[in-house]
Design a protein around this nucleic acid. Structure first.
Lengths: 227, 227
DNA sequence: CGTTCTGTTGAATACCTTCAATTCGCGTGG
DNA sequence: CCACGCGAATTGAAGGTATTCAACAGAACG
């Protein structure tokens, strides 16, 4: 199917690959569809390869003994995940679940490693991708350890603001998921949102948040001020 | 200096490289010595390359606005750090400081990237290294978000137990540094240690800790029990 | 129109941090 | 060799932030 090749060509991880190389990729690719809420793999599962999201959304998360979840990442179209599985260890280090009707590409470990070996550009792209991920995780550790929930939330809003270029932010996920992404629980998030509203920092319209006072959020994020 | 080549040959990141390749590495390597407490780079500094610890210890850490520090990693002999700088972004994402009299090798970004391009094995080794790091960070996020300090500490002890293969653990760092690594402060660590002692889980001899009840620590780490 | 999932709010509690005061350990200099 | 001094570690009391548990409101969905 030329279709798969076209879709792979749009994945930034594969930027700079020749048509032949893309074809080699497509040759080993397996398309997989998942419904909303359907698990993709569980932590500890045998790791046979990595995935790329063609369509939909996927969450990567850890679970505590008591069932609390910490979302590590939410991936959308064009993003690869579980690359770690290919290069380190034999099992997946976290859970993956589809958040919507999704279309995925699975690339088997062994064959993919061969392609990387033969392909310096692909290797560099992989390194860039994993390194970016590492930086994001470092920022997450910093946030969890050195900031309180209001600061983390303010940070998140500012990030979305910059990404979306508008004061009318789309969360893109439920508030419960946002709480889990920030390392807290829905109740706490709800309380902090209402405090932010009371102070005129934001306006809450459900899945859309309006940034009313960017300055104020920045002061929260840097710890200069508190709610 | 053949000396440098020998030392680089002992670095696992360079496993599988031919003598010529090692020589090419040595040709671009710059040796650097740092004293105890001396900064190596600061977060936000222009990132020109990566480092390898030949001797000594280096801590990588984030700082909060109020000056609290979160240690991300402590590296010893043979370990590379700041690889991220080479592949993603132009500035270092955290601070680095020497914890002892250290000898470092600096590898300039541009030249090192060239070597990777020409060297699939080196690329694979780099990918494995960064991926391992990513897994460690994921575990750290999990710990910070889903475990309380006693659980994190128990986990850390169990890790050292397995690494060192003996119940007489050497911390290798000060308790203050351990606190920062676990995302807490010395006072809290101290209190929890004394509770662990009271319950007969461990015995505290300063820089050495004796594991008296591995089972009990595991129950703490999994959340089955609390202090 | 009812059922279910998501989100909100309140009260009580738990955990960790902050601040302050000692104590301990150890290297340095007398 | 001992005494001093300084940083590291410990301990206590008070306070703050986030979680837990429970009840309820609201939105989404069939």
């Amino acid at each position: 199917m030329g279709n798969i090749i076209d879709q792979l060509a749009g994945v930034s991880l594969f930027d700079g690959l020749s048509p032949q190389e893309l074809e080699a990729l497509a040759a080993i690719a397996v398309v997989d569809k998942k419904g909303k809420g359907e698990p993709i793999f569980a932590e500890g599962d045998e790791a046979d390869g990595l995935y790329i999201v063609l369509e939909g959304r996927v969450k990567i998360f850890k679970l505590s003994a008591e069932g609390k979840e910490q979302i590590l990442h939410i991936f959308g179209a064009g993003e690869p995940f579980a690359e770690v599985a290919v290069f380190s260890g034999t099992t997946y280090p976290a859970h993956a679940e589809s958040l919507a009707r999704s279309q995925l590409v699975f690339l088997p470990k062994d064959k993919f490693v061969e392609l990387i070996r033969q392909n310096p550009s692909l290797a560099m792209n992989m390194l860039a991708s994993v390194s970016r991920r590492l930086k994001q995780f470092a920022a997450m550790i910093e946030a969890l350890s050195l900031q309180e929930v209001p600061g983390r939330l303010a940070n998140h809003f500012l990030l979305l603001f910059d990404q979306q270029g508008t004061g009318a932010i789309q969360l893109g996920i439920t508030k419960g998921q946002l709480a889990s992404l920030l390392g807290t629980i829905p109740e706490t998030l709800s309380r902090i949102l209402s405090r932010m509203i009371k102070q005129g920092l934001i306006d809450d319209q459900g899945a859309r948040i309006n940034i009313l006072d960017r300055e104020g959020l920045e002061e929260l994020a840097t710890g200069e001020k508190r709610l």
